[in-house]
Amino acid sequence: MPEDESLPERIRRKKNQLSVSQQKVARYCLTNSQKAGTLAALRIAEELEVSESTVVRFAVKMGYRGFPDMQAAIRRAWESRAEEEQPVARGQIAGKAADSLRVDLNSLQQTIAALDLGRLAGAADALVKAQRIHVCGFRTSFSLAFLAEFHMRQVHRSVRLIDGVGGTQPDDVALIEPDDALLAFTFPVYDDRTIDTIERAVDVGAQTVVVTDSALAPLPIARQLHTLTVRHDSVTFFNSTVAATALLNALVVRMVELRTDAEPGFEERITDHFQQKRSPARDRP
C-alpha cells in the first residue's frame, strides 16, 4: 500500500472488508476529520458506541502502524487543506448563517482537492455515449436531479428524469436498457428508491454515474459504476448541495467539450440557442 495514499482512498479500496462497527469508524473519520485527528481512540469509541479496540483495529486494517499513525495522517491532511483555504473574517457575518457559509466553502474546497479528474472525465464520456440518460435523486437530492436533467437535455439527444410522480418509479426504472446511462444522486439517509434504481442499471449493464458522499455509500460493485464523491456537510438538519452542484456543473461542461470535439461548433450553437431564448428587457421610463 503506498505510504502517501490518503485515508479516503484506503477506505474506498477496503470498504467491503470492514465490519459494521468499523464502517462507523470509517464514516466518522471521513465526515469529522478534525475530531478524528485530535480525540483519543477511547473518546471516538464512546461517541460511536463501539469498543476502543474496534477503532484501533480499523486503523491497522487501513494499513497504518496503529491509531496514532492514522491520526497523524488525518491531521496532516486537514492541516494541508486549511493552508490552501482563504480565511473568512468572523466579524463580517455573525451566527449560524456565517457558519453555514464557511462550511459550504470548506466543503467545496475539500471536494475540489480530492476530486479525481480522470474519474470525472470517464463519467462524462459514459453519459455522452449513452443512447439515453436517466437521472434520479429523491428527497434533498431531487433538486440536483432536476437541475441535471435540465442542463443535460441541452447536451444530449435523450434525457429522462425519474421523479416517481404517481408511483411510476418502478415503471420508469424498468425502461433502463444496457445501452443507456444512469446519473444518480444519493446522500445520507440513502433513499431506497435511488439505490434500487442504481442496482437495476448495474444489473442490465448500463453505465452508471453516482454522485454521493463517501466510499461507504451502499452501492453495488461493478465495472460500469462511476462513483464521484463530494462533501455534503451542513450546520443543521439538511444535506448541503453546494459541492454536488459544482461537480454537476463541471460534468456538464466536460460533456459540452466532448460534443464539441465530435461536432465542431456545437458549443457556439448551444450558446446562441440560449441567448436567443432570453427575452429582451423592456424599456423603462
Rank of each mutant, 00 (worst) to 15 (best):
M62N: 02
A130R: 00
V252Y: 02
L39E: 10
F187I: 07
P68Q: 04
D4C: 02
R193I: 10
V60R: 08
Q275A: 09
L30P: 00
R81D: 14
A250I: 05
E268L: 14
Q275H: 13
H232V: 15
V60M: 09
V128N: 03
D116V: 06
V253Q: 12
Q22C: 02
V60C: 02
R81W: 13
T236F: 09
W78K: 02
E257H: 08
C29A: 11
F237E: 11
R139F: 02
R231N: 11
Y64G: 06
A250Q: 13
H156P: 00
V155Y: 02
F67N: 06
L120G: 06
G95C: 10
A148D: 06
L144W: 07
V242D: 03
A123S: 12
H232F: 14
F138A: 01
K24C: 04
S51G: 15
D213I: 06
P8T: 07
P8D: 11
D261M: 11
D172G: 00
Q224E: 15
P285Q: 11
N16G: 12
C136N: 04
D192N: 13
A174C: 06
P8C: 09
T197S: 10
I176K: 02
A73W: 00
T229L: 03
D125A: 15
I270V: 15
A222Y: 12
D191C: 05
R223W: 08
A250W: 12
V56Y: 09
R132E: 11
S6I: 13
R75G: 09
D125W: 03
A123E: 03
K129D: 11
H134N: 04
R81E: 12
P218Y: 14
Q276G: 14
S21N: 15
A174W: 07
F266A: 01
F150M: 07
R193V: 10
L105R: 10
E267P: 03
S53F: 07
A82V: 08
D163N: 14
S143I: 15
L228D: 07
Q169S: 08
A201V: 05
E83C: 05
S158V: 01
A98D: 12
V165G: 00
L120A: 05
A98N: 11
Y190P: 04
H151E: 10
E177N: 11
A281I: 08
Q92W: 13
I112V: 14
V159A: 05
R43M: 08
E79T: 09
R284L: 14
K129I: 01
A174V: 08
V210I: 11
K15Q: 15
V159D: 06
H273R: 12
F185A: 01
V103C: 09
Q22E: 15
A72H: 09
W78V: 11
S53C: 05
P178F: 11
R57V: 12
L144I: 09
I162W: 04
A89T: 10
T38E: 09
V256W: 01
A97Y: 13
F58P: 04
S158R: 04
D233T: 04
V55T: 02
Q34W: 10
G66S: 15
R254L: 14
L225I: 13
I44S: 00
E199P: 00
I221V: 15
T271L: 10
I162Y: 01
G122F: 00
L161C: 02
D272I: 02
L18D: 03
